[in-house]
């Protein structure tokens, strides 16, 4: 087995096979990626990293195998691909996005993540999705219980609304962001129109998003 496939190269703790913060920095340097680049979230998802700067041996080995990487150059290529996929593939974006909620937890068993923390991760993820097609505006058509999303011609969520959301969450978001709010926010920004007019207060949105809408409506129009 190639050494770069194993965790030994980056594991600084002699008693453990796992990689921690220092190893992560070295590893990023080898890949030529900024540790704070959003693609690291995709890498973390692929290698099933339990939390920021932590990598288990099993996740590491299985992950790279799945990506068919056994050398730094192949890893570099894979990372570049992940970056494009993250920006353009909605399903993939959603998987990484949902994964990020647990990844962002600072303590095991936490039910919500701190607003500050959530905003930091949103600041990475949202622009990445907005750069490509991953978060493009969609129309929802209902077919019985099913819903079919098709790309919309109408303008939708604008990148500058991100800051509005951050401001709202910081000022009015309360203690933290629940998993439900985190996940539903993804659906929300894909389906909402740019004037926030087609929003249904009675639909299944979490009340935090209802409140945001009321709060933001005055500010965007």
């Amino acid at each position: 087995m190639n050494t770069s496939l194993d965790t030994d190269a980056y594991s600084v703790d002699p008693d453990s096979d796992n990689i921690s913060i220092d190893g992560t920095i070295k590893f990023c340097a080898d890949l030529g990626v900024d540790p704070e680049d959003v693609v690291m979230l995709a890498v973390a998802y692929e290698l099933q990293s339990p939390s920021v700067g932590e990598w288990t041996r099993k996740g590491w080995v299985d992950g790279w195998k799945k990506l068919e990487c056994d050398s730094i150059p192949r890893m570099k290529a894979a990372v570049a691909q992940l970056s494009t996929k993250l920006s353009n593939d909605t399903d993939y974006f959603r998987s990484v996005y949902d994964f990020t909620f647990n990844f962002a937890k600072t303590e095991a068993g936490q039910r919500s993540i701190a607003i500050e923390n959530a905003v930091a991760f949103w600041s990475l993820l949202l622009p990445a999705g907005q750069k490509g097609r991953a978060l493009q505006h969609v129309d929802a058509k209902y077919d019985g219980d099913e819903v079919i999303y098709t790309p919309s011609r109408e303008p939708g969520w604008k990148p500058e609304y991100n800051d509005l959301w951050f401001q709202f969450m910081t000022e009015k978001g309360g203690k933290g962001v629940s998993k439900d709010t985190w996940q539903m926010f993804f659906d929300f920004i894909r389906t909402i129109d740019d004037k926030f007019e087609k929003y249904d207060m009675n639909a299944a949105w979490p009340s935090t998003i209802d409140e945001f809408l009321e709060w933001a409506k005055e500010r965007i129009n």
Binding site: T90, D91, A140, E146, V147, I148, S178, K179, D180, M184
Partner: peptide
């Protein structure tokens, strides 16, 4: 939902489900 009495259905999977 937060207290885990309920959950939003996830099993339908994919970004194309309401």
């Amino acid at each position: 939902i937060e207290r885990e009495f309920l959950q939003r259905n996830e099993d339908t999977g994919g970004s194309n489900k309401l």
